[in-house]
Design a protein around this nucleic acid. Structure first.
Lengths: 291, 291
DNA sequence: GCATTTATCTGACTTTAGTCAGATAAATCG
DNA sequence: CGATTTATCTGACTAAAGTCAGATAAATGC
């Protein structure tokens, strides 16, 4: 059985390697060697100082230097001393470089679109890809306090509302759900924590305070692709930590019995069930934890 | 939305590329260049004649020749003229080569196991990987008539029984299900068709005949990872074709109303619903098609 | 201020990968 | 049988990738 699972992973690797090889081949069509193309793309993606480039591309100082020289000769990049530390240097795309980078982006997009077009309904495939993506790069997930109006936070909140609607089998309306006071999930009263993988939101949680010792946990959500990784635990931990930093002594939360995974987590993390403390229509289970 | 989907695919590609790169790096630790390692592995996997090796590894005649020479010099392979056509040559691993190939296999297995070990419950990840594997290499799926006692067919039949048990919410027992006559799904009375991707079974269907003009379709199953690709349609087509070749004029089948995807397919493919033609406990819908 | 460290560059070099034009030998075609 | 085709090999070459030992200049430590 274990051996069988290993061969499933290896079959997966083989089939994906073919796609990746094809993408790299298409990069060669731009006339420049793969090494130079990779550097150009990394710069386009925002890796601009040389040491960073060396790390992510695993290049020797000499090799990177020469590749940069060749891109400069093509007029695609410009390298200047870093004003903050003139030993080191930063590089950036010229206008021509931006254009060339755009063409590589186009090639990548076409390859990706091509995969999707081979499927009438690609939803299943995309969901599967997300699960793999998150699983393989879970160590790159970062937890950040950010404003709940930010782009990432908004995506989380919308996904949260959509899922709750589905799970509770009613049209869940964020405005009706008993906290018009989103602004209380903002420094200095409270906070909002987002877990993200690059630009992809994978989870969120809000701490809604009122300046006193008692605050509420709201809007705990984990992206479907990111479940089963223990992310909720990490997210709750960082929310509790952030609450502590705000001087909060006791946290409360309400939830719905449909959300059984969450409830089991709260118990595991030392929360205790308490009596109903509000008259919102959606929640039917209530918890409390002293920090 | 479409743009968002493309970036999901690209994020996926990036995260998997890292894993694949790491595997190739670990191959380099064996001291020999990647080109030679790839040839050795391809030979170990059974690609033994040179033209085949050139095709799958996309190598120039000269380059492959030299790589083989270097593996020979290491004593890992042995190349001999093909007795059937002495212009061409076949190569195979020596004992030392088998051993070295085993080490590469070990490295690959460890990488794969390592991914699985990072997950308490890897089932979700494995299922997702299977979906991606099948989707990306669907053009490599082959349909083959084979004996229902073969290894692949047995895997299909077991999976079929397991799933039916789950869908019908009863313990489904193949022996009770109204066809002790598995032997009728065998030439010359009938046949059994398996769809596979390499060594992985992705679907099956049986034609159970009795030498007359009337036969039955049995055991139609598609692996969960392979659903939504139109595989069932292809499978049914090949079953009908095989039935024709056996001189069968009319096909019947029974099924259960729980299996709604299958039922919708039968209608689409020109089957018409008919009255119950047996008294098996499980089926409750019956179809017929004149070939 | 001077030695040391850090970040990068350059030149010289090796290895790996890839290309191409014959050479060779077996098979095939007419 | 002789011409042609097919499969592979070899030599000669180029391009790309990777390594390493200084050189240089800015920053840092004492």
């Amino acid at each position: 059985m274990q051996i069988d699972n290993i061969s499933r992973v290896r079959n997966f690797g083989r089939s994906v390697a073919v796609e990746i090889g094809a993408l790299e081949d298409s990069f060669l069509d731009r006339g420049r060697p793969l090494g130079a193309a990779r550097v150009l793309n990394a710069i386009g993606l925002g890796y601009q100082n040389l040491s960073e480039l060396r790390t992510i591309l695993k290049l020797d100082t000499g090799l990177l230097s020469r590749l940069l020289r060749s891109l400069e000769a093509e007029g695609l990049i410009e390298t200047n001393p870093n004003p903050a530390d003139k030993r080191s240097r930063v590089t950036r795309l010229t206008e021509a470089g931006e254009k060339e980078f755009g063409i590589y982006e186009q090639l990548s997009n076409e390859r990706a679109a091509n995969i999707l077009e081979r499927h009438k309904d690609a939803r299943r495939l995309l969901d599967a890809m997300d699960i793999v993506t998150v699983a393989l790069s879970r160590e790159n997930i970062v937890f950040e306090e950010m404003d709940y109006t930010s782009d990432l936070a908004t995506k989380c909140l919308n996904a949260f509302a959509a899922e709750l609607s589905k799970r509770l089998k009613v049209e869940f309306d964020l405005k009706k759900s008993g906290d018009p006071g989103l602004s209380q999930m903002k420094q200095p009263l409270g906070t909002f924590v987002v877990a993200r993988l690059g630009d992809f939101p994978v989870g969120c949680v809000g701490v809604k305070g009122n300046g006193g010792a008692l605050a509420e946990i709201k809007r705990m959500w984990i992206a479907p692709a990111a479940r089963g990784l223990g992310l909720a635990h990490q997210l709750m931990t960082s929310a509790e930590k952030a609450a502590c930093a705000l001087g909060i002594k006791t946290l409360r939360l309400d939830t719905n019995s449909t959300l059984f995974e969450a409830i089991s987590l709260y118990r595991k993390m030392g929360w205790t069930e308490i009596d109903r403390f509000n008259d919102d229509p959606y929640p039917d289970v209530f918890f409390e934890k002293h920090l």
